[in-house]
Design a protein around this nucleic acid. Structure first.
Lengths: 200, 200, 200, 200
DNA sequence: CATGAATGAGGTTTCATTCAT
DNA sequence: CATGAATGAAACCTCATTCAT
């Protein structure tokens, strides 16, 4: 019954893409494997050659994404030492991800709770690297006197949630381009950190 | 068979409270009416004496909350005219809601998408008043030269998402009290708006 | 809590009337006691002062109706001896019932099967008197040579079903009045029985 | 877990047959999908592989049957022109259906009202062809002077209801065979239409 | 006589998943 | 690798009925 020319990676890509779309539009619990199969051009049973359970599928999506982001983040920070520069780079990278991979980052922000607690924990551990990196940047900046703020945890969370929420409201067909948005957020983050303001 | 002394309002309160708890912990789709009934001390069918569908229940919760917040917000802005004062009051009120009614605001932030599109729209219309109020404050401030920023929409969204995200990370058993958090956010919002900084 | 002026018979009448209407429009299984209560201006629980179960309610309706019809039928045949006259009177009476009490006769024709087998049997026993009377008229006519037909059972059923089906198609707002319809059916029955035709 | 050798068409036949039996014995609302599944050797959920809702199942049964009958009716009238011959053929065909497919025709006569109004209308449109054909036969006969009666609508309904009611009382284990019954009804219909009587 | 509050049983339907072919 | 047929568990919801007040 194998369709001529079908091949594992290609099919997996269809499944993945269809999954992201459905997850984005309906959410994990509201989406079902029948829709997923149909959107991927398969019958429901065939999905199980590509994942062992619906939840494992979600987990893979989230972890893969997170790893990509963390890698990218670390690369973009490589070689930078000045806290302000590092903060800028951090924000730039994160904003880009939340615009360009808007659907996936949106899913990640909302569907972690759909994972079993095991997988949730393992995801969160990876996800912490995010926070930790930002925390370090802020602390370094404070130590060096280039940033000034009250509670580091509050600031970190505020910055992080402002950036990650981009995927909930950004409209790719709207007037705002990625560059403009990035600049805005770089400026906002600096201000929040109490860094010397850039002239508007 | 009627439990002696049972009473509509009391029971509704149990249902509501149990619902908030379950929604907070599991999410709308993952929560089920059996759990809800049990937590409220009812049999599943009896719930339908209190709402006409699971989704209508969610809708009622969200709308009631939103109406409370909007009312409170408008009251707290009453009589204030200076943009900075108004921004402070706005932030103060919103932060309080996201701390004190953490579970409900969290639910609201995540479960709007579980509503049918009809109800989603009607909710969003109410919810817009939120955004509009903040937008006006920022615009007035910019006009009067006390605020300075790039794109009002970006700023508004950034502030709003930073504040509403509080319900996702705030730990009531942690070290941070409501007052401290409020002050932090008031300061952050001012900075984001480009207002004259308060000395740290 | 008793509503001033409410009284058993009046309320029972409201329940009965509402029941006939609902049964006619939706059928026994599709109708529910909530609708019945509402249409009768009561709360669901209160219905049980007027019947002991939904099915007993149906039974009472059907039996009462049948008894009325049988009584009427017997009265209208009283004193008549000639088979043709008796057939005419029988048809006339039955047609009238199926026009004037169209809803109830319709219900009866369809909802006997909704009774438990006990009640169904007891109903059917009464209902047989119907058939028997017609059978006797036909047999007498055949014996006296004024009717002529093949199988008495087939004829009896054919006549009976043609008449009782009136309640399924008769339109009280249509052009056909009761008199016209009655005459038509009297003539049809005579023809079916093979009696001397009336000139058209 | 798939039962070896199971096959869509075979299973559908089991579902259909079981459905007809249950519908005949209990009626649509009183029958339930658990019974249906069990009688068909399936689990309840599996039924939905064969229809999309209980009501759609009923609709399919009714429409399929009606289409078979209409086709058969039209075939049996093909080539016949004389109204008497056409009436005979019409009755013969319809009687056969109500005897041989007694259960299904019975269901059809009673359960149309269980369809949603959409499906009810679409069914009724098809079902009208029935009535129209008979109406035309009668009118032609009247025009040619071989039939004589009062109101065509009344006559048509009377004939039709007498014939379709066969499925409500015919006892296949009784003395009356199909041929006998057919002859009786052919004769009855002629008489009702006021055609020249056949000698008894 | 009537209501308000609730029950318990059961109804249809959905859905992730399995597995012989 | 893929399908076709089915499962089993559970989901939401409906409804006749009960009974303290």
């Amino acid at each position: 019954m194998r369709i001529a020319g079908s091949n594992r990676d290609e099919t997996w890509n269809r499944v993945r893409t269809a999954g992201v779309d459905l997850l984005y539009r309906h959410g994990f619990e509201a989406m079902n494997t029948r829709q997923l199969a149909e959107a991927a051009g398969l019958k429901p049973g065939s999905l199980y050659y590509y994942f062992s359970s619906k939840e494992e599928f979600l987990h893979r999506l989230l972890v893969d994404l997170l790893e990509e982001i963390v890698t990218d983040l670390e690369e973009s920070l490589e070689g930078l030492t000045a806290p302000v520069e590092r903060l800028d780079a951090y924000i730039r990278t994160l904003v880009r991800w939340h615009v360009v991979r808007r659907e996936e980052t949106f899913i990640a922000s909302i569907e972690v709770r759909s994972l079993t607690s095991d997988r949730q924990e393992s995801y969160m551990q990876l996800r912490d690297r995010f926070d930790v990196i930002l925390g370090e940047i802020l602390r370094d900046g404070a130590d060096q006197g280039v940033f000034s703020f009250q509670h580091p945890g509050v600031l970190r969370n505020a910055i992080l949630s402002a950036v990650t929420a981009i995927s909930t409201w950004y409209d790719p067909s709207g007037a705002l381009g990625l560059d403009v948005l990035t600049n805005d957020f770089v400026e906002l983050a600096r201000r929040m950190a109490g860094g010397s303001p850039t002239p508007v």
